[in-house]
Design a protein around this nucleic acid. Structure first.
Length: 634
RNA sequence: GCCGACGUAGCUCAGCUGGUAGAGCAACGCACUCGUAAUGCGUAGGUCAGGGGUUCGAGUCCCCUCGUCGGCUCCA
């Protein structure tokens, strides 16, 4: 029998009979590999095990240890769920069902509105399909055949319509269910070791709010029960860290129905943490040549007309009218952004090139009427404070200024122990400015990243309409990512507000304007910090750094004296003076995640000492008050 | 804004198919004065998110509004 030669990932060559499939190759290498094989990769493209090899292919066998394996599994699980839905609800029409991070979903339309209880029946049906180890069978069709096959399935037909003429259209069948699918899939349903349907949601067809809303079920799938359990544990961990729960327990902030959605109220401890962060950042900014400004929360509508907010951002703004007497009524708008104020300051006087770059910053509180469905604790509020800054500069200064911002991003995130990645967003379809401006600005951002040796990804077409941007995504203690810092070039405002500066040649030129935040919104950043630290702030951020715990009433006097001296030394300290056993006070301090507990009893009063209990270490022994203060304030 | 779920004492939650509200913690009072994660007893606390409806009767069923949660969309 004629043979063909294929190349394996280790560079070696393997001869197999003509017509051999990926699975045949795996068998030829070893029976255990054949058993573990899920799919193949031929010249980098994923294929099924049944895929026929040709001479000269470079082939890799995908097993459950391969990085691509989980998405194959999850995509296959989505098919199994679709089949379960189809058997339970034969009228079902399906949309799309991809794998996503940690799982999969499928969108579909059925007559019944599902409730969480219905998920159990679907899971049960899925378990049955999985236990039957049904093979996924691929077939290839012409566009016309595919169209006919999905008769009565408008969503699938719409997808078929969009497949370019001449492209291969493939479908996969497992059991009674056939789905339009590029593939590949795992060999049979039995490979899905563990799964769970997680939640039910609505989702617009093709993500378009003009189109019908389908039902969506999210699920997760893993090779083993152990992995599934670990994933569920990760979710519980995230729930334990939920800033809304911890915010309540640690008495940091509250939200009130009567106040309105998305308008957090900071309690003394929450306010303290925010102010500590702000004061620290303020000093860093002063050191880096920023000027702090303070601008009003409301402006007359004219400002918003000039800025374009009146026309383009109205539905997100709070506008109101004020009766100014004699039948005159004036429109005012609460600021959703700080830029117009900073621009007015810029324009207050003639700016020389010698004044540039001008770095203006403000902890500016803004209000945006976000859609009711998106507000979420501190993470997405309607009133929030940005650590906002605008840098007005010349074209040549863009790259160096962006580099300075990136250095600041790096420094700030390092202080909190965050790792992060950068993404550059390029010109979107709906945008203003010339191609040349976009190119100069986008390259300016990329140059800054490259000169600093920072890796970045490109988000094609994801820039703001007024200019390209760099977004920074943090990775927190349990691996979740959060978008915080953003650096944006703005072509719009210098134009709209007719901003100029005097050049060295005594001509007028338009400055570049950069927007940037480092923390993003203070609210959101605090929320991220709460979850990152699981509520246990490091000593420098802790709203209460130490509590003094007198053992009995006769120790109150010494406790007070300790508190006074520590306060003078700059330690944030409280005395737990209620008449309760020491262990109760310790329990309370532990729950409040206070870094240090200072037990004072007879021995400490006698020697003017404190017995220090560290929150995570436990009792670390006695020391003098000054020594302890030094330890905290450092 | 859209789809769905939910909203009971300050907090966490119980209250089956409609018969007129309950626990633990917290608060307050009294006792205990204690050596490293929760002392005992007692008291008080709710127009069951708000409004409307069905019913002899609604925390429980229906509608609207507000809010919360999970998604979608949005994030000039």
């Amino acid at each position: 029998m004629p043979e063909i030669a294929v190349r394996l990932p280790d560079g070696s060559e393997k001869h197999v009979p003509e017509g051999a499939t990926v699975l045949d190759l795996a068998s030829a290498i070893g029976p255990r590999l054949a058993q573990a094989a899920l799919a193949g990769k031929v010249d980098g493209d994923e294929v099924d095990l049944e895929h026929t090899l040709t001479d000269g292919d470079t082939v890799e066998i995908v097993t459950d240890r391969s990085p691509e394996a989980l998405h194959l599994l999850r995509h296959s699980a989505a098919h199994v769920m679709a089949e379960a839905i189809k058997t339970l609800y034969p009228e079902a029409n399906f949309g799309v069902g991809p794998d996503i991070e940690d799982g999969f979903y499928y969108d579909f339309r059925i007559d019944k509105q599902l409730t969480p209880d219905d998920l159990e029946a679907i899971e049960e049906r899925m378990r049955q399909i999985i236990s039957e180890e049904r093979p996924f069978e691929r077939s290839e069709l012409t566009k016309l055949e595919a169209w006919d096959l999905f008769e009565g399935d408008p969503f699938k037909q719409e997808l078929i319509e969009e497949i370019p003429e001449g492209d291969t259209i493939s479908v996969y069948r497992e059991g009674v269910f056939t789905d339009l699918c590029r593939g590949p899939h795992i060999p049979h349903t039995g490979k899905i070791g563990a799964f769970k349907l997680m939640k039910l949601a609505g989702a617009y067809w093709r993500g378009d709010n003009e189109r019908p809303m389908l039902q969506r079920i999210y699920g997760t799938a893993w090779f083993t029960q152990k992995e599934l359990d670990a994933y569920l544990e990760r979710i519980s961990e995230a729930e334990r860290r939920d800033h809304r729960k911890l915010g309540k327990e640690l008495d940091l902030f509250s939200l009130h129905e009567e106040a309105g959605a998305g308008l957090p109220l900071y309690h003394p401890k929450g306010a303290r943490v925010l102010r500590i962060i702000q004061e620290w950042l303020r000093q860093e900014l002063y050191r880096r040549g920023y000027d702090e400004v303070i601008t009003p929360h409301v402006y007359k509508a004219d400002v918003w007309k000039t800025s374009g907010h009146w026309d383009n951002y109205r539905e997100n703004m709070y506008f109101f009218q004020v009766d100014e007497g004699e039948g005159k009524v004036a429109d005012y708008g609460i600021k959703p952004m700080n830029c117009p104020g900073h621009i007015m300051i810029y324009k207050n006087d003639i700016v020389s090139y010698r004044d540039l770059p001008w770095r203006m910053f403000e902890f500016g509180t803004v209000y945006r009427h976000e859609l009711s469905g998106v507000v979420h604790g501190l993470m997405r509020a309607r009133g929030f404070t940005q650590d906002d800054a605008h840098i007005f500069c010349t074209a040549e200064q863009v790259t160096p200024e962006v580099m300075k911002m990136l250095e600041l991003v790096d420094y700030v995130n390092g202080e909190f122990g965050f790792e992060y990645t950068a993404e550059v967003s390029t010109r979107p379809e709906k945008s203003m400015g010339s191609d040349e401006m976009w190119e100069v600005a986008t390259n300016g951002l990329k140059d800054a990243l490259e000169q600093r040796g920072q890796e970045y990804e490109i988000n094609e077409g994801d820039g703001a309409f007024y200019g390209p941007k760099i977004d920074i995504k943090l990775r927190d203690a349990i691996g979740r990512t959060w978008q915080t810092a953003t650096i944006q070039v703005d072509f719009n405002n210098p134009e709209r507000f007719d901003m100029t500066y005097r050049t060295a040649e005594n001509t007028e030129a338009q400055p570049f304007m950069l927007h940037r935040t480092i923390l993003g919104s203070m609210e959101r950043f605090l929320g991220i910090l709460i979850e990152h630290y699981a509520g246990a702030f490091p000593v420098w951020l802790a709203p209460v750094q130490a509590v003094v715990i007198p053992i009995a009433d006769r120790h109150l006097e010494h406790a007070e004296s300790v508190r006074e001296r520590l306060e003078v030394a700059g330690v944030r300290v409280e005395v737990y003076e209620e008449q309760e056993p020491m262990r109760v006070k310790i329990a309370k301090a532990q729950q409040q995640k206070v870094p240090y507990m200072l037990v004072v009893g007879d021995k400490e009063a006698e020697g003017d000492l404190v017995a220090v209990r560290e929150r995570t270490e436990g009792d670390i022994g006695q020391m003098g008050v000054a020594e302890f203060a030094e330890k905290v304030v450092g």
